[in-house]
Design a protein around this nucleic acid. Structure first.
Lengths: 228, 228
DNA sequence: TTAAAATTAATAGTATTACTATTATTATTG
DNA sequence: CAATAATAATAGTAATACTATTAATTTTAA
């Protein structure tokens, strides 16, 4: 995994940035540090001015890379889902047994990111924390239809589609595969959030991971046995 | 239902407002019109100044009722979940059969609000649209733990708890009742959103309602038959 | 009925945000 | 070494999210 990821670069919609942040040190710093800063102070309080101060750079220099903070968020979330897609594809490839593959897919999608893989300037563990807290804000906007048409959510949609296929192949009779796929991917984020802030609303805690809940949910719904 | 609702008033945490908007015409106008305006322009673009212009009142007068627009959103969402709780309790009361009761609960929680009941200055159909688009923003904040401690999410938590109980009573062996309850309630909003903006990510459309998906999901998961 | 109290409206003002524009400086490359 | 590209610095703007003060109006209670 480590090795495979070494040559990994997420291809992100080029309208999401003005200048590709991967092509310069400043760009990488903007991406890397914005993740840390958004995690610390939250997306609402995050500004390019504060980020500039933090990386000893200027507000206006950041505007050379990203039009505004919303586009930066779309960039970061695309990166995350692209990385997740990569993990999903690699970790489920070559698993012949459809049930085992489905189980693995749920595992990849729902496991907590424990470590930064150090493959890049991106801290995946903290990026995961941001996704849990901020992802919804990237699409719960009045511009969503326009931005969707532009293709800004393409990676996420492709990921949901891949998971839908894995579900459908494991149980061809099931008619709600798309909804189940999107419910699980969204639900995973939600359960992680509840675990941290509303423990009474979730069964998940130190001993029970979202993975267990969703594995049980999907296999029961599809009327499949986890081991066979 | 109409009649029962006539004497209905949601009891909302008193720290969510500075002056109870139910006690004056201006207050009711603020609540009623804020729903319409947020629906029209989205929560991000919504300001008290714009609302003031719309109700031919002054920005500063609105500040007499609500500290800021975040508190107003918490007020509106509390109202919505309180109304939902009321519907849930009434519509599931006196249903002896536990499976039938569970099915009814899912129906109440997932059905599309078709009509404004005209019981108040609140347009429930539009409020429902707001909840779909904006509810997450009320808790995906850095202040969530503090606000949760204050009790601002009490009504929502009580609703999830009630649904959890209905699930647990229908299937006492099931160990993930809390997570299933929160997943369904959150998932319903998400599926309604996807239906409108990302049709490829959901099975729900004109012919298939979220209700069908979630009814199937819950009954399969709990290993119960819908009719028996 | 009238005076006090409460409510609402109007005006002004502030710090911050989310930018844009311009120019100067520094680094890179051909 | 010169041209070009990238970055930094400075300044400025309209809008936002408020606060404070005072004035006008309405409500209530003696």
């Amino acid at each position: 995994m480590q090795n495979l990821l070494r040559n990994f670069k997420v291809v992100i919609h080029e309208k999401l940035y003005l200048k590709d942040p991967e092509t310069s040190e400043l760009g990488k710093k903007i991406v890397g540090e914005s993740i840390l800063l958004i995690d610390e102070i939250g997306f609402e309080s995050f500004t390019f001015k504060k980020l500039g101060a933090r990386i000893s750079s200027n507000e206006s220099s950041i505007y050379r890379y990203f039009e505004n903070k919303h586009k930066l968020l779309l960039y970061l979330t695309s990166w995350y889902w692209g990385w997740m897609e990569y993990k999903l594809v690699f970790q489920t490839a070559n698993i012949a047994n459809l049930n085992v593959r489905l189980k693995k897919a749920i595992e990849v999608l729902s496991e907590e990111i424990q470590e930064d893989t150090n493959i890049s300037h991106v801290n995946e563990k903290i990026l995961n924390a941001i996704i849990i807290n901020e992802y919804s804000k990237s699409y719960l906007t009045k511009e969503v239809d326009h931005e969707n048409k532009e293709g800004y959510f393409a990676i996420y949609k492709r990921l949901v589609g891949r998971f839908e296929t894995i579900i459908q192949e494991a149980q061809p009779n099931y008619v709600f595969a798309a909804s189940l796929a999107s419910t699980v991917i969204e639900g995973v984020l939600h359960q992680h959030f509840l675990k941290q802030h509303f423990p009474s609303l979730t069964t998940c805690n130190k001993h029970t991971a979202p993975q267990q809940f969703f594995t049980d949910l999907v296999f029961s719904t599809l009327n499949l046995k986890e081991y066979e």
